[in-house]
Nucleic acid binder design. Sequence first.
DNA 1: TTGCAGGGGTCAA
DNA 2: TTGACCCCTGCA
Length: 279
Amino acid sequence: MEGVKDFSPTHTFECGQCFRWIKEGDGSYTGVVKGKAANIRFHDGVLVLSNTSLQDFKDLWYDYFDLGRDYSEVKSRISKDGIMRKAVEFGHGIRLLKQEPWEMLISYIISSNNNIPRIKNTIKTLCRLYGAEIRFAGGSHYTFPTVESLASSSIEGLNICGGGYRCKYIAKTSRMVRDHEVCLEKLAGLSTGEARSELMRLPGVGAKVADCVLLYSGTKHDVFPTDVWVKRVMERLYFHRTARFEEIQSFAREYFDGLAGFAQQYLFYYARENKMGVK
DNA sequence: TTGCAGGGGTCAA
DNA sequence: TTGACCCCTGCA
């Protein structure tokens, strides 16, 4: 696809919204989405996806990369002050991916009180053990495990993936989703508050994980996932004091007016890459 | 090499 | 509101 603006694979894949895109030696990225493996490279407004038909591009990738959205407008609307202008300029190529809610749910349960290398390893192992193999570009890649495959696996089996105490959350959550106790397909039809409460009924899912699932699946863009990094940077740049989570969330919702999720993503990337969240 | 602190939160008391 | 929690990583 030509004439793509406001896009950088590095910004998009390294800004913290996904764990499974792998950077290749030539700067391109390889990943698996909905059972399709592909390699993506971007140069001078031209987006090249290998291993992809025109039909796949229309049915899958166009939506996945949120290519129908005018990010210039989003960015100008959230650039409300000097801080946000800097953050937006720094991460100018970020696009919020529309990933599968199920994959986001399990991935962000794993992310809690955890570090990034370990999160990535755990997800990778989970996919290798419970996903389906895809041969692509001379290597093995794996789909994200289905609800059924995780729900029917034993705790002992899941423990091998290295998720620690989160494995029991994965087991219980998988079974609840399989049994339609919580229906991920219905989240989009609920209000943001209702969708959040619904997700938080699942074990291992608190406010932060619920917000990540809603935002990174493209279901709701008015949430403001508040982790320690976002909390610290908001305290430092906006509050100039310690602030409570609820305080930060309500400020962000009001201040960014429905686009809080986009603002959070530029801020998080800016803060983390510049080590602004270190204590 | 060995040892230790800490990590993109959640849960239970 | 506070502490425990699996255990992998990174760094003395």
